[in-house]
Design a binder for these strands. Structure first.
Lengths: 229, 229
DNA sequence: AGGCTACTGCCAGAATCTGACAGTACCGCA
DNA sequence: TGCGGTACTGTCAGATTCTGGCAGTAGCCT
């Protein structure tokens, strides 16, 4: 196995162990000496991989996605850039910032002539939806990623308010409004919550007892016609 | 210089020369022997780079974007995936397909556990805009990329039709409609053309005499308020 | 036919990588 | 305070890989 292959393997090993893992174990799994492992770790860190080592504990890979070298065609990069620009216009501040950062990272690793092409990709997105949401959708996305319950008060179409505890598993982005899709503990059913009608949002630490993929699949089955992605 | 760095340099060299270039020239630029160059070319091809060599001509890099290894955070990958899904719902068939392909390429190089996360990224996009455009926006995007004139007939807001020859340099994506932004040769001014009012589109081979970046910059300066990305 | 080029196999020297050992520093725990 | 586990660095000889030169085959173009 060549060295570059082994470096990718090392990343996968680190990802498998979510807890800190000692260098000795990693070296064993890869079939290399501890000394070589230290060198490989240093190489990966030099390439920007977020690996952290602490004496007495071991190594952890901070969450993130490592993309190996990748080829995109002209149209594919146009599509990715246009999509990221659309996301950058969304009212969700954190997500918007992430889209800008992703574009910057792509631009940063491109050679100069291609960076110019990317900046000049002349597919533009219209003005933002101008929705006024008092809540931070970033909290909702985090709860979805970690499969945690949410607690908030909701004002329905008729204006009546109610307290809800829900298991969120998706967010729908529509032209004018964003909708949180969740299993509602209060109503014991799938419910859609318009983000602009949610108030007093609290992200709890309580994990809900289902996988979000399973909830998503079940919810899709209840729809008359397919939607979403 | 390490071998992996040199491989990236080789790609950049190939990109600089748009015309076929002989292996001897490339080896000179990189300061390596012709024999090593052949080995490097073989390595890159093995990693999927679209390099074509023809005896008697030289090497050419088929158009495409090469991204070196890249790290994205959770939120950044969510942003890219959401953006690509939005593009995938656009009526522009070729662009939509490119977005799907880009997602597939990203998924293909991800380890299994992360691919699952990506598929399960539960940020959904609403139903497509359902615009009915008789023309192929792919032709317009190609004309923009290559800075070629377009020839079509346009029906304005009042219903009056006219034949136009324009220099297209941008497309605006709005909620309900797409707009081609161009310098209109017929009117000698910047004009916006709603895609659904364009008919009889012909992509010409005639290059227009300005850079599209310059046109874009000039057009932006004529706007009262900033827009686009 | 002749020139140019891509491509392969081979081999010896150069460069790099690897494993082992020794040593330092930090953390948590008793 | 001492002790074990761990991260990290320096050094060095042997293993591995890389590199350049050479010879040879084959395809494209004029």
């Amino acid at each position: 196995m060549s060295r570059s292959e082994r470096l990718l393997d090392l990343i996968q090993c680190l990802r498998r162990h979510r807890r800190p893992v000692s260098g000795h174990v990693l070296a064993d799994e890869l079939g290399i000496s501890i000394r070589t492992l230290y060198r490989d770790i240093a190489t990966l860190q030099g390439q920007g991989a977020p690996i952290e080592g602490e004496a007495g504990l071991g190594y952890v890979l901070k969450p993130g996605f490592m993309l190996p070298p990748l080829m995109f065609s002209d149209e594919e990069i146009e599509a990715v850039v246009l999509g990221s620009r659309w996301v950058a216009k969304q009212p969700d501040i954190r997500l918007s910032a992430a889209a800008v950062n992703a574009l910057a990272k792509i631009a940063a690793v491109l050679p100069d002539d291609l960076r110019e092409d990317l900046d000049a990709t002349t597919l533009l997105v219209g003005p933002p939806a101008m929705a006024v949401e008092s809540i931070d959708l970033g909290l909702v996305r985090q709860a979805i990623r970690n499969e945690r319950k949410l607690d908030f008060s909701y004002r329905d179409a008729g204006g009546a308010g109610s307290r809800r505890i829900v298991w969120p598993f998706a967010i729908g982005f529509f032209d004018k409004v964003r909708v949180v899709v969740a299993w509602c503990e209060t109503r014991q059913d799938f419910r859609h919550f318009r983000a602009d009608r949610i108030a007093g949002l609290t992200a709890t630490d309580i994990r809900y007892p289902r996988r979000r993929q399973a909830l998503l699949k079940e919810w899709r089955a209840t729809l008359d016609q397919p939607r979403g992605s």
